[in-house]
């Protein structure tokens, strides 16, 4: 039983990371109406920037902040340089452009840092024993960080003027414009937010695993799965779907086999989409 619970905790941690990345993906989708395939590479940028900040100061908090800032910056720059000019074109152009941006990011990181792995040199600690359960202090920190980040994102979306404008643009861009909402400012804020959330997912993933130029790109499939499962364009759905996929994968794989881990995620996805074609939380309009 304790083994089962430990697996669930481990799945929860993986799920939160995937859910955060799915949130970044779904935020852009809700407003800009395309799947940003560079989301994974925004994650990687965040992780490398955090490594830089962490290396310079020795503080993970500062490192994380540098990572978030870099993610926001990369998000805004790619909007200003690429996605702004593609507004009004079919969404497939933006999707293709985002794949291209991902290539550029990976190539630049590969040239600058090489393709070898890097790690956050954090002290490794033995687990706490709570009854028969092993709990990793690091897991707890990762979990709390992810939850705080979620809270901040929802506060931004629902309790700030810019968040209200974002939701207005998501609902009906024309109506928002008629109501006097400047789309450029909203889009910049959106890309900054999405970039920062992706970067946070990248930093957490980097702490759990290793940092390499391909790390984010390789996570893209589970991230897409979570975003679709949650109902694309739905922030809460993305997170919950990420956690659901993570936990179900972890607790089921000892029984069905580890090679089918990713396949299992897609079986769940298929099953849910058969019953609810819009995803768990999706509505026809997407985000509100």
């Amino acid at each position: 039983m304790s083994g089962f619970l430990e697996l669930a905790i481990s799945g929860l941690m993986s799920g939160l990371v995937i859910g955060l990345a799915a949130l970044a993906l779904t935020l852009v989708f809700g407003v800009a109406r395309f799947a940003n395939a560079a989301t994974g590479d925004f994650m990687t940028c965040g992780a490398y920037a955090a490594l830089l900040g962490f290396g310079a100061t020795g503080s993970m908090v500062v490192g994380g902040a540098v990572g978030l800032a870099a993610g926001a910056l990369v998000g805004m720059v790619s909007y200003l340089l690429v996605f702004r000019t593609l507004e009004g074109r079919p969404s497939v152009s933006a999707l293709l452009a985002s794949i291209g941006i991902g290539f550029v990011i990976r190539a630049v990181l590969g040239v600058v840092y090489g393709h070898g792995q890097q790690v956050f040199q954090l002290p490794l600690v033995r687990p706490w024993r709570v009854y028969d359960l092993r709990i990793q202090p690091n897991d707890l920190k990762i979990g709390i960080t992810a939850l705080v980040a979620l809270l901040v994102v929802f506060l931004v979306l629902h309790a700030t003027p810019i968040g209200r404008r974002m939701r207005a643009v998501a609902d009906d861009p024309m109506l928002a414009r008629v109501s006097g909402i400047a789309p450029r400012q909203v889009m910049l804020a959106l890309w900054a937010l999405s970039g920062a959330v992706a970067a946070l997912a990248g930093v957490l993933l980097g702490i759990k695993t290793v940092v390499s130029p391909e790390m984010g790109w390789e996570m893209l499939i589970p991230v897409f799965a979570a975003a679709v499962l949650g109902g694309i364009g739905h922030p809460v759905g993305a997170i919950l779907a990420g956690v659901l996929l993570g936990v179900l994968q972890e607790i089921a794989t000892p029984y069905v086999g580890f090679t089918y881990k990713l396949a299992l995620a897609f079986v769940i996805l298929l099953a849910v989409l058969l019953v609810r074609p819009k995803g768990l939380f999706g509505r026809v309009e997407g985000v509100r």
Binding site: M13, T209, F258, T259
Partner: peptide
């Protein structure tokens, strides 16, 4: 014997087994 997939955020389930 455990065979695992690449690019996982965690290998704890595999290790536990």
């Amino acid at each position: 014997n455990v065979v695992y997939e690449p690019n996982q955020p965690s290998y704890r389930a595999e290790l536990q087994k």
